[in-house]
Amino acid sequence: MTVSDQLHLSTPVDVLLIEDNPGDIRLTQEAFSQSHIATSLHVVNDGIEALDFLNKRDTYEAVPRPDLVLLDLNLPRKSGAEFLEELEEEPPHLAHIPVIVLTSSQAEEDIVKSYELQANAYMTKPVDPSEFIATIKSFENFWLEIVELPPAGDGYD
Rank of each mutant, 00 (worst) to 15 (best):
A152L: 14
A62F: 15
G155M: 13
L27C: 07
Q6C: 13
P91N: 06
L41V: 11
S105A: 02
D5V: 14
E148C: 07
N120Y: 15
P126C: 12
A119G: 05
Q118P: 00
E86L: 15
I25S: 04
N74H: 13
V63H: 06
A38H: 10
L84S: 07
T39K: 00
V15T: 04
P150M: 14
P64K: 09
F139R: 00
V147A: 07
L87P: 01
L27P: 00
L144D: 04
R26I: 10
F53V: 02
Q118E: 11
A119K: 03
D128A: 09
L16Q: 08
P129H: 10
I136N: 09
E145H: 08
T39H: 06
L117P: 01
T135I: 03
V3D: 02
V99F: 08
S40R: 13
E30N: 03
E109L: 07
K113M: 13
V101N: 06
E82S: 15
Q118F: 15
Y156N: 02
T11A: 09
D58L: 11
G47T: 14
L70Y: 07
K78T: 08
P91R: 07
R77F: 10
R65K: 09
S114I: 11
E19N: 03
D67W: 14
G23V: 09
Q34T: 01
T2I: 02
E19W: 11
L68S: 06
F32W: 09
Q118T: 03
W143R: 04
E90D: 10
N55P: 00
V3G: 04
L71G: 01
I37G: 01
E61D: 03
Y60W: 15
S105Y: 07
Y122W: 08
I133T: 03
L54M: 13
Q29M: 09
N45M: 09
L27E: 06
F142C: 00
I100A: 11
L144G: 05
E82D: 13
L73W: 13
T124M: 04
P64S: 05
A62M: 10
L7C: 03
S4C: 04
E131V: 00
R77G: 00
F83H: 08
V99S: 02
L70M: 09
D24Y: 14
Q118N: 06
N21F: 12
R65N: 05
V101W: 12
K125I: 06
R26S: 07
D46C: 12
D58Y: 15
D14G: 04
T103S: 09
M123P: 00
E89R: 06
H36E: 05
D14A: 10
M1W: 14
E61K: 04
P66N: 10
A121E: 08
P91L: 05
E30G: 00
N45I: 11
E82Y: 15
E49N: 02
S33L: 07
A119L: 07
R65Q: 14
P64E: 07
F83L: 04
P66A: 13
E89D: 03
L70K: 03
L16P: 02
F139L: 01
D14K: 10
A81E: 12
L54C: 10
L94W: 13
P12T: 12
L54A: 07
R26W: 15
L149K: 08
V99T: 06
D154V: 08
T135P: 00
H8Y: 08
K113L: 14
K78I: 12
L84P: 02
F32T: 02
